[in-house]
Design a binder for these strands. Structure first.
Lengths: 137, 137
DNA sequence: TTCAAACCCTACTTCTTTTATAGAGTTTAA
DNA sequence: TTAAACTCTATAAAAGAAGTAGGGTTTGAA
């Protein structure tokens, strides 16, 4: 399941994607437009900025705007930024790989292979959903 | 990600699936065989029993055994029993549907449709992985 | 009939994560 | 110089995960 944070991040990105080109949105504007607590949204936007999904302009008349193309921001990207691995266990993850502490031998693990199949399918589906595809609906 | 509980449940089922037909496994035997804390496993086996995945025999010489066919227990089933919804948000879930409290209109929700596509793909993949398929690896 | 083995059940504790909130700092345009 | 707005860190409250404790109940056999 998505965390509230990831859900808010997606809603914020969708909000930004729906604005006119070159428009800069203030945090309070996004917060009210997408029903997100403002102070919480501040953190989320900073994370999105650090992830290079949005850009910001500081000072008066500042705000946030999409940095990447709507078409190139996928659900997989945002999930990874806020909720981490797509795979069901770290040992089956591409980007967040970690060995199971209680696993005697990874090659003999009965679970891992199946989880990697699921990861591949889920990842493919998540990479197919972009901010652009969601806005177009 | 899978909770530890779900992971343990799968490991316990795999253990049971690897025993001879008609063999009854005691909790302590499964716990040691699959590296699961015994008292925690007790709860998990009870949940699996209530979900009709395993059967039990009480009293001396009692224990647990698979109730369903190895082929008919899927990863989706076990995920749902312990970790709940497969979908990324309750509003996109088949078995754990719940309306988003902050969603003005479900039909106008930009997120929901995309999440349902992902749910369908993930579910299909998870239903394809059975205890039997994992043991055969 | 008694006893021990083993499942059954509920409550509790501890730890971590999530979901925020608070408040001060920094930058910028007018 | 000032106000608007982003930036950053710390803290708090609530929820959930993971595991522990301690009985209760059932069953087979001596």
């Amino acid at each position: 399941m998505l965390s509230q944070k990831t859900k808010y991040a997606l809603k914020a990105l969708l909000y930004l994607a729906q604005q006119d080109e070159n428009h800069i949105s203030r945090t309070i504007e996004i917060a009210e437009g997408a029903s997100i607590p403002k102070k919480f949204l501040e953190q989320i936007l900073l994370d999105l900025k650090r992830g290079h999904f949005v850009g910001s302009k500081q000072g008066k008349f500042g705000g946030y705007y999409l940095l990447k193309d709507k078409e190139s921001i996928t659900l997989a990207d945002i999930h990874r930024l806020f909720d981490g691995a797509i795979a069901l266990l770290p040992c089956a993850s591409l980007n967040f790989y970690e060995r199971c502490s209680d696993c005697v031998s990874e090659s003999e693990c009965l679970l891992r292979h199946g989880l990697m199949i699921i990861r591949d399918e889920t990842l493919k589906a998540m990479q197919g959903i972009t901010i652009a595809s969601l806005v177009k609906k």
